[in-house]
Design a binder for these strands. Structure first.
Length: 849
RNA sequence: GGGCGGUUAGCUCAGCUGGCUAGAGCGCCUGCCUUACAAGCAGGAGGUCGCAGGUUCGAGCCCUGCACCGCCCACCA
């Protein structure tokens, strides 16, 4: 049990000491693991975007973790049965690449040790590193259901993946085809369009002459001369008058001698190059389609190993692509066929995974047709069953879904869900269990990682079985994620959820900011711009990092702000020290209970209700920045700066009602702040008299609106404004900080607060009728400063003059408005009224001066 | 090429459906070790809201054009 002496000695909150033991207490409590009872509509659930099993926490995880945890803790404290579905993704390419790298370091390779041994190594890798990211989420304070952790290779999960594949195959959506794909030489696998990124590259554009049969020539432009070996046609635009006569003729492919028909196709641009285009259906996606339109042959001269094939001819076979390019150019040069070369900068596809340049090639792969699944997923967003925030992302989703293309789902990897497909001669078998009979061979390919991820919200809950978990937590409530996987993952979850789980997978999609480096560049390890959230947690505390990230977050991308983290750190420390003041000062027997006795008591109870109401609204609206900053404002600007200062004398005297009120305020504030800064609030909770169990498991009660007292709130606001005015005056006229200023209060509305005003501003009010030496306007009147208080009369005069000028200018402005008939006529009454009231107020102040 | 978002204090950002003298944090200046916190407290300076037009009684906010910056999508070799 915490000791009072600890509170006395710990004048500074030390997150690094506190947070790890709080994590342990939470995990031991079982609070994060709900029993699957009730219905999904009454419960609250979120499925985490599963991090890569061997990954580690980056800033995006930290932000998204903070966001989801705020939602989860908030709803848990509002009394809902709450489940944060947690687990990890096998992350096909990423994990396989890491394991392969290790093998190469050991002087071997995946080919050398074979598939079985490789998969075993990958599992070992997972055993070794799989807990890292889990511990890191725990360190962040994420209150996920770790007792029910899922992995995309869990037995049940694999069953779900297989079931979905087989059903989609049986429906005819999944098919095998020979088609041009994005071949990633780095991972030696096909990848989907979404895993390709364009990068600007400096290339050379070569102009090559091809002879025409019967005389003449065509000149084609290309950045990849080596692919000419696979040309099967030359094309011109049908409307290009320069080349009309060429259509139907035959060109001779240099170095190879193949006869190439000259065809007409709309794709060819008349204003690029020569308007004559070499057609290479085997190695260019556009040419592939042109080839299909015209029934051209596909020749493959580049193999999956990135080297030229036998078909390239014996001079080139076996050469890596770049060497082949040089060799081809050299031979063309020797034949005098390079008409021109020019430097050329253009966008080229690269693998998002391996970073290598994509090699488009024709390959036999499994594809999934998407239109049928997209249609209901579009409708779900259009009719609001799924709401996407911010709204701009909704249109992006709809546009992409409306133009959806087939998805290449097979990957030539070993770490993944192997296709449930077997072949025997010409026969193909697809099923959840292996086929009967001899001689079947299983397709070696695995599924795109995103295929299994698409099932995450329901496969984690036990689908395809009808489980209590599914009934209690599907559909989930919110999916929070980064923009870059809106198509890759979110859209596919919606499609799969509707098709297989019979409902949308979540009702709200929150697309959060991308946190950029402080200089605006992308945060990345390779650029050296990455900031490790765990380092930040170590130095500033998880509360600070959570607060800072939430305060930074926005509907657009934001730069990482060290100041916001420090603001969070300051808030945690402030709350800790405010709690020390309260806990060390209250009666030992006191228990939390609102017992307002004074105007400031009534005022702060009203402020608390407002703070709480706003927090709920903001969190419900996914406005995390304002939720965090609003909390800061309440704790600093209202509770600490004013209320605690106001009640200190009563606290030192020992007022039992105040003790009860203070403990109540502290308890409610801890509850209010907990979802944002869970650690420091939990730590303080452990010292709070009358607090039972863990704050993480505490249930909010609805605010008691009968505690509101608008008049008291007004009086205290007036007091605050007056104190501020007097402090400002004494600072500018150089009253010594410790001095008390003798004065007479000539203002209304301070019956209950005059004493406080004098104390906080260090003035002494007397009924003295002496001649004032200076006047300070305060709301409702003025304070007449009497002789005896030392101040700088010149400064006082300067201040008075400056203020007078300000007031006159503002009064003139407002009166100008009011003199404008059209304003009085057309502006809403309350605006006009407000303007009149302003003039009156400012005139009052001017007169007081 | 198409689309989306941005440009507000020295820095990072708020500013909701147009309406008090445009705000916050940090930084800066001044003063205070006031028995919760000096990583604190109090006070202060600092902004022609990217540019040019327009609508309106009234524009940081709405409209048009322009200039930069960022992101997404897209099949010019």
């Amino acid at each position: 049990m915490p000791e009072r002496s600890d509170l006395e000695s710990r004048t500074r909150y030390e997150p690094a000491e506190v947070e790890p033991r709080i994590v342990d207490r939470w995990l031991e409590s079982g609070l994060f693991h709900p029993e699957p009872e009730g219905t999904a509509s009454e419960n609250y659930s979120i499925a985490i975007p599963p991090p890569n099993v061997t990954g580690s926490l980056h800033m995006g995880h930290a932000l998204n973790g903070a966001i989801q945890d705020v939602l989860i803790r908030h709803h848990r404290m509002r009394g809902q049965r709450t489940k944060w579905i947690f687990g990890t993704d096998h992350a096909g390419i990423a994990t396989q690449t890491q394991v392969e790298r290790r093998l190469i370091e050991e002087g071997t390779s995946r080919e050398e040790i074979g598939r079985e041994a490789f998969v075993r190594r990958a599992w070992e890798w997972r055993e070794q590193y799989g807990s890292t990211i889990v511990n890191q989420f725990q360190r962040l304070g994420a209150s996920a259901d770790y007792e029910d952790e899922r992995f995309t290779f869990d037995e049940g999960y694999v069953r779900a993946v297989t079931r979905v594949f087989v059903e989609l195959y049986e429906k005819g959506y999944i098919y095998r085809d020979r088609y041009i794909v994005n071949w990633d030489p780095g991972s030696r696998s096909a990848i989907s369009d979404l895993e390709v990124e364009e990068r600007e590259v400096d290339d050379t554009l070569y102009y090559i002459d091809y002879d025409l049969e019967g005389g003449g020539k065509v000149t084609v432009a290309t950045v990849r001369p080596e692919t000419m070996l696979a040309d099967t046609a030359v094309a011109v635009n049908p409307d290009d008058e320069r080349h009309h006569d060429l259509v139907g003729r035959t060109a001779i492919l240099p170095l190879v001698g193949r006869r190439l028909p000259v065809i007409a196709d709309e794709f060819v641009k008349t204003d690029f190059g020569t308007g004559q285009l070499k057609i290479t259906p085997g190695h260019d996606p556009n040419d592939f389609e042109i080839g299909q339109r015209h029934g051209l042959d596909q020749v493959t001269v580049i193999g999956e190993d990135g080297r030229m094939t036998e078909e390239a001819g014996e001079r080139f076979a076996g050469l890596p692509v770049l060497e082949a390019r040089e060799a081809v150019v050299a031979e063309l040069e020797a034949e005098g066929r390079i008409a021109k070369r020019e430097p050329y900068r253009h966008a080229v596809p690269f693998s998002h995974r391996s970073g290598e340049r994509i090699e488009p090639l024709v390959s036999l792969q499994w594809f999934m047709r998407m239109e049928e699944l997209a249609e209901p997923a579009i409708r779900a967003v259009l009719d609001g069953r799924v709401r996407i925030h911010p709204a701009g992302q909704r249109q992006v989703y709809l546009d992409w879904m409306g133009a959806i293309r087939p998805w290449c789902i097979s990957r030539q990897l070993w770490w993944g869900h192997q296709l449930p497909v077997w072949y025997r001669g010409e026969e193909t078998y697809v099923g959840e269990t292996p086929p009967e009979g001899e001689g079947w061979e299983r397709d070696p390919d695995v599924l795109d990682t995103w295929f299994s991820s698409a099932l995450w919200p329901f496969a984690t809950l036990g689908w395809p079985d009808d489980t209590p978990q599914l009934r209690a937590f599907y559909p989930t409530d919110v999916l929070s994620t980064a923009r870059d996987i809106l198509f890759l993952w979110v859209a596919r979850m919606i499609m799969m959820g509707l098709e297989f789980a019979g409902d949308v997978p979540f009702e709200d999609v929150y697309v959060h900011s991308v946190i950029q480096a402080p200089d605006g560049r992308r945060m990345s390890k390779s650029l050296g711009t990455g900031i490790d959230p765990l380092d930040e947690i170590e130095t500033h505390g998880a509360d600070a990092v959570r607060f800072g990230l939430l305060a930074m977050s926005s509907t657009q991308d934001v730069r990482y702000s060290a100041e916001k983290i420090q603001q969070g750190e300051a808030l945690a420390n402030k709350l800790w020290n405010a709690s020390r003041l309260i806990l060390l000062g209250v009666d030992e027997a006191a228990r939390p209970e609102p017992r307002p006795r004074t105007v400031e008591d009534r005022w702060i109870l009203g402020r608390l209700i407002d703070a709480r109401t706003q927090a709920v609204e903001r969190i419900d609206a996914f406005d995390f920045s304002r939720a965090a900053l609003g909390l800061y404002e309440f704790v600093y600007g209202e509770l600490c700066d004013w209320y605690l200062e106001l009640v200190k004398p009563r606290l030192y005297e020992g007022d039992p009602d105040l003790s009860a009120t203070l403990l109540y305020l502290l308890r409610e504030t801890l509850g209010l702040a907990h979802s944002v800064i869970p650690f420091v609030t939990e730590e303080i909770w452990s010292y709070l008299p009358g607090a039972e169990g863990l704050l993480a498991g505490w249930r909010f009660v609805e605010p008691d609106h009968s505690l509101r007292d608008p008049r008291a709130e007004q009086e205290v606001q007036r007091l605050i404004d007056a104190v501020t005015a007097l402090r400002s005056w004494r600072a500018t006229v150089r009253v010594p900080a410790g001095a008390t200023v003798p004065a007479r209060l000539e203002a209304d509305g301070y019956d209950a607060t005059a004493e406080q005003l004098a104390r906080l501003a260090r003035f002494a009010f007397a009924a003295d009728s002496g001649e004032p030496v200076a006047t300070v306007p305060v709301p409702g009147g003025k304070v007449q400063v009497l002789a005896g208080g030392g101040f700088d009369p010149e400064e006082a005069e300067r201040r008075r003059g400056a203020r007078r000028a300000e007031l006159e200018a503002e009064i003139a402005r407002a009166e100008g408005k009011l003199a404008n008939e059209r304003f009085v006529e057309r502006a809403p009454a309350h605006v006009v009224e407000g303007e009149r009231a302003k003039v009156e107020r400012l005139r009052g102040e001017l007169e007081a001066l």
